[in-house]
């Protein structure tokens, strides 16, 4: 890459982005901040409420429950998708025509719009009419994702694994194929076991992309909305109501502006903080 020159006039090139993002991000964000400190009874009359909404949200068991569900969901997703993705990437063929066939087929789920994924899994998992529902019921389990909380969780997680494991596979595979053959030959001469090859050659090479994969999967699964909304609508009961779904229910369903705004900000801060910690750790590791 060419060396960068210092040029303050570059600001003129950035101005359009700054204006657009400011219109789209700062105005709404300030509106949220505004609401989160005030009470309204309609007609644009507002009363200063201080941190009342924050206390209410932080103390409400509803928020605790959906936050807990969200954390469990995200952890399960990460625990399944990352090792599974790495394992599949390791088992992929190294060269030949099958590489491109595999890659294209695996990339397919990534191209499908989120609401289509939800609708698709809905018909796929229906206990009577769907293929998956039939198979599981045929094996002797009582499976109905619209009624059983466990089945709803299982389906939501399967759906996310189906949709996003390929991303981990593609990233890990890209990292693996950048390892020169000489490394493997050296390992062979030293009589390294497959585990040693994985631990000391492949894993260090994949570390960087895996951090990115974990970060992306964390962010996206923590903000998941469309897919469970289409699949289960947050039910049965509230068992698959994750943070986003709960937030939209409060904000647009009940029009409780104050609590919704306070919750939005807490939610945003959680994601931002975790991502920032990840980002800093990642950068620190690279400098070493």
């Amino acid at each position: 890459m060419a060396r960068k020159t210092t040029n303050q006039k570059a600001w003129f090139l950035v101005i359009p982005v700054v204006l657009l993002v400011a219109f789209n991000a700062i105005i709404p964000l300030m509106t949220v901040v505004n609401y989160s400190f005030q009470e309204t009874f309609g007609d644009n009359v507002f009363f200063w409420e201080g941190v009342k909404w924050y206390e209410q949200v932080l103390r409400s068991s509803r928020f605790h429950d959906s936050l807990l569900r969200q954390i469990i969901f995200t952890s399960i997703i990460l625990v399944i998708e990352i090792p599974l993705g790495v394992a599949i990437a390791l088992a992929m063929p190294k060269k030949g025509i099958w590489v491109s066939v595999c890659l294209v087929l695996m990339a397919l789920p990534l191209l499908i719009p989120w609401n289509v994924v939800g609708a698709m899994w809905n018909i796929y998992a229906l206990p009577e009419l769907g293929l998956l529902g039939r198979i599981i019921n045929g094996m002797g389990f009582d499976y109905n994702f619209t009624q059983g909380p466990l089945a709803a969780w299982f389906t939501t997680i399967m759906m996310d694994v189906w949709h996003w494991t390929s991303l981990v596979v593609l990233l890990a595979y890209a990292a693996l194929s950048s390892i020169p053959d000489a490394y493997y030959q050296a390992a062979k001469i030293d009589g390294a076991t497959p585990w040693a090859v994985f631990r000391y050659i492949q894993l260090p090479k994949m570390k960087r992309v895996l951090t990115i994969a974990i970060l992306l999967r964390f962010m996206d699964s923590f903000m998941i909305y469309t897919e469970p909304f289409v699949l289960t609508g947050g039910g049965p009961g509230n068992t698959t109501t994750f943070l986003s779904i709960d937030l939209v229910k409060i904000a647009l369903g009940q029009f409780d502006l104050g609590p919704a705004a306070a919750m939005s900000l807490i939610y945003f801060l959680i994601v931002l903080l975790t991502s920032w910690i990840f980002y800093t750790l990642m950068m620190n590791n690279e400098e070493k």
Partner: peptide, 19 residues
Amino acid sequence: LLTNRMAPPAVFALPFFQL
């Protein structure tokens, strides 16, 4: 700019609606 990518879309649903 990147932080906007990290923001949960649901957070912006309400203010966008009004804006």
